[in-house]
Amino acid sequence: MTIVVTGVVVAVAASLVLPITARHAGRRLPPAALVPLLTATALTAAACLGFMLCALALAVAARENPLAATGHWSPTILRHLLPVPTALGLTAGIIVGVLAGSAAWRVLTTSRALLHAEHLARNLPPQGSTVIDDEIPDAYTLAGIQGRIVITTAMLRALRPEEQRVLYAHEHSHLRHRHHLYLQLTRIAATANPLLRPLVAIVRHGIERWADEDAVRAVGNRRTVAAAIARAGLARARAQRTNAATPRLALGGADHGTADRVAALLATPSQPHPRIAFAMMGLLLVALLTSLATTALTVHTTFERAEQHTLISTH
């Protein structure tokens, strides 16, 4: 009982601490390290919480008859070794059911969106990037097996030649590193464990920063990259004012992503304590994995003992 409850506490605490740690690490770790680390930790934290809730629910369900009989578990032993109150087990069961259900739904919608994107990509010319004649400055990467980059003529007109190189380098980075997967996986983890929701915005910002840093490597100048992003953002904002039909992102307004990216590029790249950031993230990951492993082991041995006892007592 205590070990499972401790497991739940560890999972919840880690999920609460993770976004704070992520914000701290975001200023110190290169995005190419931060994003995969965050995604992995988020998935672990989601799996951990799900497992603990399942264990609580199972401890209660396994001592009730249909299940107890099928598994040949002794309800008395189980009640003794894992004294989970029925109400707690039931609550855990309901919560994990809802969370797993919504996570499954998220996996489904994500896969459908990927298929849809793949279908769209196949309708575009086969080269990596497509320039479309459009008066709204816009540029995006479409995820998929092949992936496509779409840039409007208005966006190209808004940028200087070296800034166009920034744009291509940035979008190619998204394609090459399959950035959408990190975002989608984090989103799935955050659906399975809603405490992780703040991580989605951090990962979204992280993949943009990652692509920006790749663009810096491509053009060799941080200021050019910053200028490209600022000019593109301003051109889009201007088009938005003059053209009411400009599409708006639902998440727009609330996030200061574009300005933050420019600021990050212009800041002197001093990363004072990347080791501390690494250590903090690592510690969280280890805590989660340890708690997962010990709980799994305990639950396993408990059920084995309950089963052995039943076998002995029936002879």
Partner: peptide, 9 residues
């Protein structure tokens, strides 16, 4: 599904 990433928000 987040299949599109935009250059600027």
């Amino acid at each position: 599904g987040e299949v599109l990433t935009r250059f600027v928000a």
